[in-house]
Design a binder for these strands. Sequence first.
DNA 1: AAACTTATTAACCATTTGGTTAATTTTAAC
DNA 2: GTTAAAATTAACCAAATGGTTAATAAGTTT
Lengths: 201, 201
Amino acid sequence: MKYNIDTSEKILNAATHEFEEKGYNGTRMQGIANRAGINKALLHYYYKSKDALFQIIIHKAFKVFIPQIVSVFEEDTDLFTTIEKFTSSYIDVYIKNPRVPSFITQEINNNPERLVNLIQSSGVNVEIFKNKIIKAVKEGQIIDIDPEQLIVNIVSLCLFPFVAKPIVTKLILRGNDKDFDRFMEKRKNEISTFIIKGIRK
Amino acid sequence: MKYNIDTSEKILNAATHEFEEKGYNGTRMQGIANRAGINKALLHYYYKSKDALFQIIIHKAFKVFIPQIVSVFEEDTDLFTTIEKFTSSYIDVYIKNPRVPSFITQEINNNPERLVNLIQSSGVNVEIFKNKIIKAVKEGQIIDIDPEQLIVNIVSLCLFPFVAKPIVTKLILRGNDKDFDRFMEKRKNEISTFIIKGIRK
DNA sequence: AAACTTATTAACCATTTGGTTAATTTTAAC
DNA sequence: GTTAAAATTAACCAAATGGTTAATAAGTTT
C-alpha cells in the first residue's frame, strides 16, 4: 500500500475549499487538516508543502474547466452559434463550481505570471475566436467592432457576476443564494441574445 | 503638535499600496513600515492595529469613488444618456485608480458583509436606476429586459477588465500596461454603444 | 535653557504558522 | 502469528508576525 487514496482525496477536498474561500495567504495548514479530520503531520505526509498543495489544486481546476470551453472555439460553426454555445456552457460550468471564479481572481492578484502561463499552456488560443470575429466583420454580418473589445465583453458578462456574487445577490437582487442561482440560470440563456443584438448589423 | 501629518500620509500611502497589491492577509506591517521608510513601532504609534489601518483605507476608497457614480443615477436624464454617462465616468474613475477594483474584489471574498454594508450606507440606491429601466421598457423604448440583468451587464462590462487586467493584457491584447490603458480608454467611449444597441427596440 | 510634549527607534514578547521528528497504530505479506 | 511496510499521531521547532516597552531624539512653550 502506498498512500491511502481516501485520505488523499479528503485532504484535497478540504484544501480546495479552504483555498477557494480564504485565498492562499488566508489559508492555514491546520485549517485544512481540521477540515479533513486529520493531523497536520499527516497532511505533510501526503503533500510536501502548502505551496505544493496549492499548485496541485490550481492546476486541477484549470485542467477541468479550460478544455470544455476551448472546444467551443474550435468548432466550425458561425459566430452567433459560437457565442451562444460559449456563453451557455461557460456560465454552466461556474453554476456548478461557483467558487472557482473568485479563486482564480485572487490568484490573478497574487501571481499573474503563473496564471497566464497556466492558461496559455492549457491550450487556450484566443486567435481562433478573434479570426472568426474579424471574418464576420468583413462579411458584413456584424458591425465594425474591435474583436478584442468583443471578447472582453463576452467574458465579462459571463464571469463578473460570479466574482461579485455577494454584491449582485444582496445589492441588486436583494435576495439570497437561491435567487442568485435562478438569476444565473436565466442569464445563461439570455446573455447571448443581448450580445448578438449588440453586434448584429 | 499631535501627529506629524506628513508621516501619517506616508504611512497611509504605503499601506494602501500594500493592501491593494497583496490583500489583507498578504500584507505585513513590516512591509508597510519599510515602504513608508519608518519603523514598525512608529506605524503602531500612528495606527492602532493592522485591522484599524485597513478599515480606514477601505472606507476612504469608498468615500472617494461611490458618490461620483451615484450622482449619475439621480440625474433626471433619459436611460440612454444615463448609461452613457455612467459607463464613461465609471471606467474613468478606475483608469485613474486601476488597482481599486482588485482590492474591492479581494474584500468581497474576505468580508462580503462589510462590503455590502459599506456600499449601502454610502447611499447607493439601485432602485432609481431599476425604475428608469422599467419605465423605458413600458414606454417601448427598449426591449423587454429584466432590469437586474441589464444592471449586471453594465457593471460587468465596466469593471471586469480591471479585475482581470493581467489576463486581458497578456492573453487577449498580447501587450503591456500601455496597451491596456489604450484599450480601456477606447472602451470608455465604445461600451455604451454596445449596451444601447443591445437593448434598443 | 529648563520643562514638557511629540516623534521616532531598538529591542523585546507572545502567538501563530509551516514544517519536522520520533514514536505508535494499522494494514498487508509471508 | 511474526514481520515489514504504510498510515497516523503527539510533541516539538524555528521563523515570521502583530504588537509592546522603554528609552531617546526632536520640537515647543515659557
